[in-house]
Design a protein around this nucleic acid. Structure first.
Lengths: 198, 198
DNA sequence: GGCTCTATTGACATTTTTGTAGGTAACTCT
DNA sequence: AGAGTTACCTACAAAAATGTCAATAGAGCC
């Protein structure tokens, strides 16, 4: 009886890293940052934990790579949605886009993670994006930079809060989970409209 | 030369627990949940780590005790501020109170911690508080329960977002750290006023 | 003073998590 | 086909974190 060699899947370095990062992201989003253990990430990715170390050097390497990737994705997601579209009814969709980015795609959890671990410096990339929006679509609508900045600060904060605790909060007061989002969206749109009228 | 016995501070069980919880809270607030290590908590409290275990049984015991205490404090802080005061200019102060509770006192960080670790069920105590506010001060102002609930959902979400990422966000776009809070407060008050006028 | 109770501790033990080393197998290129 | 490269693995080692235990020392009580 011959011993048959163990079959091995061999990915490209990029594919391997991506596979691992996806596993890590899944863990982060549905079990929280403290679930980002080397062995668990490896198990989720279907590889040996030594393989994770081979590609990222350390568990910290995995974390920072994940942070950077998620930040990039978040920025791209928002920018592609807000960027030069027809400036007509865009206003109402901005809320939708923001809330989607922060709720469905784990933007809120990412931000919370960064904040709680003191890694907000990684967000500096976002600054350029914000300025693009202020001087692009918003300026086109005749919104002064000062006002634009304030609106962004508020809208993002709101999206953050809703994305993070919106569902729990609604359930807590005996409402359907989406009701926080809906209420916040209405409130935001009303406020935006009011702020841009006079 | 005689060996002199080691001097020991002996607290009451309650004082000992409190001392430890305060150390844990400090760690949580300025280093994040993953900094809640047994040894570090003990060091912060100035006791041996075995002492922590004696009082709380396990590190999980410390965490849940901390969660419960912080939740209690949060609820009390908000309720005592919102409760039966003169119903006159109370409206403007509500935002202040909420924002204080979620920002200065680590309400936002607490909530984020609970959310990320899936411990939101601990918040059920809050439900009673919310109902008290809805049927108390808010009803007195003639706000329908439906509207009241929506307003609370939005206001709390906003306070959450501002409390957690407000400062970082402002700095990110080159503004003074308090500007997010200020903008959010204005926006909230304007929205509240509008929602209660007609 | 002597006694009891227990908060406190250092030393040890266990478990969890992370990291290292060396060999194996998959792929590319010639 | 053969050689070189390296993604991947198993086995081991180290470190970090949690938990156990028996002894010690404050404090109240007789």
């Amino acid at each position: 009886m011959s011993i048959e060699p163990v079959r091995r899947l061999r990915r490209s370095p990029e594919a391997a890293r991506q596979n691992i990062l996806e596993a890590a992201e899944r863990l982060l989003l549905d079990r929280g940052p403290q679930a980002l253990k080397l062995v668990d990430v490896a198990k989720g990715a279907g590889v040996a934990h030594a393989t994770v170390l081979h590609h990222f050097g350390s568990i910290d390497g995995v974390q920072t790579a994940l942070m950077e990737q998620m930040i990039r994705q978040l920025v791209v997601q928002i920018l592609t949605a807000v960027r030069p579209v027809d400036p007509a009814e865009q206003l109402e969709s901005v809320g939708q886009v923001l809330f989607d980015a922060f709720e469905s795609a784990g933007g809120a959890r990412l931000a919370a993670w960064l904040e709680l671990t003191g890694e907000t410096r990684r967000l500096t990339i976002v600054r350029a994006a914000v300025e693009e929006v202020i001087s692009g679509p918003m300026a086109q609508k005749g919104i002064a930079p000062e006002t634009a900045t304030n609106l962004i600060l508020v809208a993002v904060s709101l999206a953050m809060g809703v994305g993070l605790i919106g569902r729990s909060l609604a359930e807590l007061v005996g409402r359907p989970p989406e009701s926080t989002r809906q209420a916040a969206l209405d409130f935001l749109n009303a406020g935006l409209a009011a702020a841009l009228k006079p």
